[in-house]
Design a binder for these strands. Structure first.
Length: 308
DNA sequence: ACCCAGGCATTGG
DNA sequence: CCAATGCATGGG
């Protein structure tokens, strides 16, 4: 009882580049994978879980994605199909286009090269704001591998898992599933006292309805940032990252990031920038600074993989 | 044995 | 207001 649907991203869109970015830190989780052709990931349809297989049926300049949803016992309602389409559009970064950023990057040779190298990379988003926040906090100041193992343990213990046509899947818990958990339980999974407190605090914020993703959609970037900064565990770096990865806003920039200071500095001046210099320089890319951010992170990741 | 990794809140000057 | 410190784990 499979359903199919089609998604048309804004051009230019390079499916492999985006799928690689999405799965970069997810390789080990098994339920979210890209084999070079097809991106597979579980889709949460309010109680039912479908496995989505997503692949490209177009080109970079005329992009089109095909999606098959499997593991369903009956065909989907129109509302469910709409929800699935929305989720696929969200995680693949179908909306928006990096083109305006390219026009700006043209002015600086090193950045023109950067834009060319990752041509067709969009702003992809994580599945939910809650999940993005939880991931960001888990990952603060620890290596991606450690963060991934903490995430897996939380998913195993509190999330939903199962199997669809022989393929195992695991979904990170919803806020409601984590809200009643104790600090000690999370510490037993390897989280620090603080990470445990922050995680539960955020789950409570969402589960109680004090913080919702919908409640932020009509606010401008600065108002969203103010809301997020009130929450323990979220500082400036994380707030900006959430605007980009969690909400898909095109003009956020985590200026406190040391790797960005080093990398952008080396590209345009030959040496690391101070935080102030970075803010000033990034200002030239308003209102598309999120693209500058993800293109730099894509470069940083590629270098790490290359070095390893 | 160390040090660090896409930070943050807290504390002490 | 700025600088130093603890936090947790796993890989180099």
């Amino acid at each position: 009882m499979n359903s199919t649907l089609t998604v048309t991203p804004g051009a230019p869109y390079d499916f492999a580049a985006n799928a690689g970015f999405i799965t970069h830190y997810r390789g080990r989780e098994g339920s979210d994978a890209f084999d070079g052709e097809t991106l597979t990931r579980p889709i949460d349809l309010c109680g039912k879980v479908a496995m989505a297989a997503i692949w490209s049926t177009g080109t970079v300049d005329r992009p089109e994605l095909a999606v098959t949803l499997s593991g369903l016992s009956r065909s989907l309602s129109a509302a469910e199909l709409g929800s699935a389409t929305q989720q696929v559009e969200r995680v693949t970064g179908a909306a928006g286009s990096p083109q305006p950023f390219y026009e700006m990057a043209k002015e600086v040779p090193a950045l023109a090269t950067l834009a060319e190298r990752f041509h067709g990379l969009h702003l992809t988003r994580a599945t939910s704001l809650f999940e993005t926040i939880a991931w960001a906090i888990l990952g603060q100041q620890i290596s991606a591998i450690v963060a991934a193992s903490l995430r897996s343990r939380i998913t195993e213990n509190y999330g939903r898992s199962g199997e669809i046509e022989g393929a195992p899947y695991a979904l990170f818990p919803h806020a409601e599933q984590l809200a009643g958990v104790t600090v000690d339980e999370l510490r037993a999974l390897g989280l620090s006292q603080r990470k445990a407190e922050y995680t539960i605090g955020i789950a409570d914020e969402f589960a109680s309805g004090r913080l919702t993703e919908d409640g932020l959609t009509d606010l401008d970037d600065e108002s969203v940032e103010r809301q997020l900064l009130k929450i323990r565990g979220i500082g400036p770096w994380t707030a900006h990252w959430l605007l980009i990865r969690g909400l898909g806003r095109p003009d956020a920039f985590p200026a406190g990031d040391v790797a960005l200071q080093k990398t952008l500095g080396e590209l345009v001046t030959g040496k690391a920038m101070s935080p102030d210099e970075l803010v000033t320089y990034a200002g030239h890319f308003r209102p598309y600074r999120s693209y500058l951010t993800i293109y730099l992170f894509a470069l940083i990741r590629a270098r790490r993989v290359g070095a390893a």
